[in-house]
Simulated assay, not measured.
Amino acid sequence: MASELLDALTILEKEKGISKEVIIDAIEAALISAYKRNFNQAQNVRVDLNRETGAMKVFARKDVVEEVFDQRLEISLEEAKSIYPTYEIGDVVELEVTPKNFGRIAAQTAKQVVTQRVREAERGVIYSEYIDREEDIMTGIVQRLDSKFIYVSLGKIEALLPVNEQMQNERFKPHDRIKVFITKVEKTTKGPQIFVSRTHPGLLKRLFELEVPEIYDGVVEIRSVAREAGDRSKISVHSDLEEVDAVGSCVGPKGQRVQAIVDELKGEKIDIVRWSDDPVIFVSNALSPSKVLDVIVDEEDKATTVIVPDYQLSLAIGKRGQNARLAAKLTGWKIDIKSESEARDQEIYPRGNIEIVDDEEPLFLADDELE
């Protein structure tokens, strides 16, 4: 058994990357507890596992004293010198006390320690691998569902997709392939636990990185994302290279790139707008598909008043205020939308020779425009 144990530890060190010395130290510590528990001993003992032969021995450690009060822990100077003449008071004498049937207990204890250490090492490897994937996208396979979670296999581990991170328009069944965004990786007593999402704005951003080479290469940058998962989203994009059409790159030939993302998100509508450091341009772009006549900016309160044609007021606000709400999230500016006639009544429009600088209409991608 002894040599087999050492051979097994050598194999584990190569295959699992677990140090043989670390396991041996753990086995020795576990054997001390096993000895005291099984043989009802309160001695101060040391267990030695021979690194060459694998033989295990138990040694009682006793302090050399002038007068012995506890024979389990102390030994007289006279008795110590009979063992080895150079012993002095304060030294520690080690006496072998290995029980005859200690081998069976040692084998069982060693097996438990090795199993535990292998499990801990595997958990550590998995945690190290997935902690680096936080805020990243992965493809998994649905394993099972209950009232709280969808359990998604990511290969080495099963991730949890909570109900509040699921899109309402989606229904999955076991064995479905699914792309998920990793929101959190936690260490627990039972091993790593991974939480994923289908509603996080980061999922949309990562999907564009996968589909649009210009984004992956850094030529086009996603500056902000606003999302109401399963219904509608807006992203703003920008490129420092004048010859690169940031919006066109995201759309792709005949809308193929963005359509792939729309399909993955089960028909979620996506507005792709051009980012600008000028809030007038950026806010007007963000309110696509409505036409904007003017944007009045309040820098102090980071608020804007947007003037739109009367017939486009409902389009600018959107169903249940969704378009305005997403535009505000996308730009980081408060947005108050007024119709042209209301603005004229309040004498805030027109303001003179002020016009929207960007004459290019923002791009709104609806299903019928992608055909």
Rank of each mutant, 00 (worst) to 15 (best):
N50C: 12
D358Y: 04
N164A: 11
L241F: 15
P201E: 02
E209D: 07
K179N: 03
R177W: 01
L287S: 06
D294V: 05
N50I: 09
S153K: 06
E186W: 02
K156D: 13
L313T: 04
D48L: 15
S76D: 03
V185S: 07
F149E: 05
A26D: 06
A121D: 05
V247G: 00
S233N: 02
R37G: 06
L161C: 03
L210W: 01
P279Q: 04
K187A: 12
S76E: 01
I261M: 01
F364E: 07
E264Q: 15
N40Q: 08
I317A: 02
D359I: 10
R274P: 08
E214R: 02
I261P: 02
Q312W: 06
F208H: 05
P99H: 02
G332R: 00
D63A: 13
I141Y: 01
E360V: 15
K156S: 11
A260V: 04
Q312I: 07
M56E: 11
N164L: 11
I89V: 15
T189Q: 12
I150F: 04
D301H: 11
R51P: 15
A60V: 13
K205I: 06
K184T: 13
I18T: 13
R72N: 12
V92A: 02
I157S: 10
V295K: 01
H200P: 07
I317E: 01
K291T: 13
L95G: 06
S341W: 07
L204V: 02
D25E: 14
F208S: 09
T139H: 07
D245A: 07
V47S: 07
Q166L: 15
R46D: 12
S76W: 03
V225I: 02
A60I: 10
Y151I: 10
T331C: 08
I131N: 06
R223H: 08
W275H: 05
K291L: 12
I272N: 00
I126K: 01
L9Q: 01
Q259K: 12
D25P: 05
A34H: 03
Q43L: 06
Q168W: 08
K14Q: 10
K329L: 14
L6M: 00
A316M: 04
I131Q: 11
R227S: 00
V212I: 15
T189E: 08
D263N: 13
A107Q: 11
A107L: 10
R117A: 02
E135D: 13
R123A: 03
G352Y: 12
R198Y: 00
Q41G: 07
K266M: 13
K57A: 12
E158M: 12
K111G: 10
E371W: 08
D25H: 10
K269L: 05
S197M: 07
V295G: 01
R171Y: 11
E228C: 09
I272M: 00
A60L: 09
T305H: 04
T304Q: 00
R274N: 10
S276F: 09
E79H: 04
F149V: 09
K57E: 14
N44M: 08
L315W: 04
D294Q: 08
F195Q: 01
L77Q: 05
L207N: 03
Y130L: 10
L204T: 01
A80H: 06
V64F: 05
E13S: 15
I157L: 14
L363V: 14
P362G: 08
I270N: 00
E28P: 06
V273A: 00
E21T: 14
I182C: 05
E28D: 07
I150A: 10
T305M: 13
L6S: 00
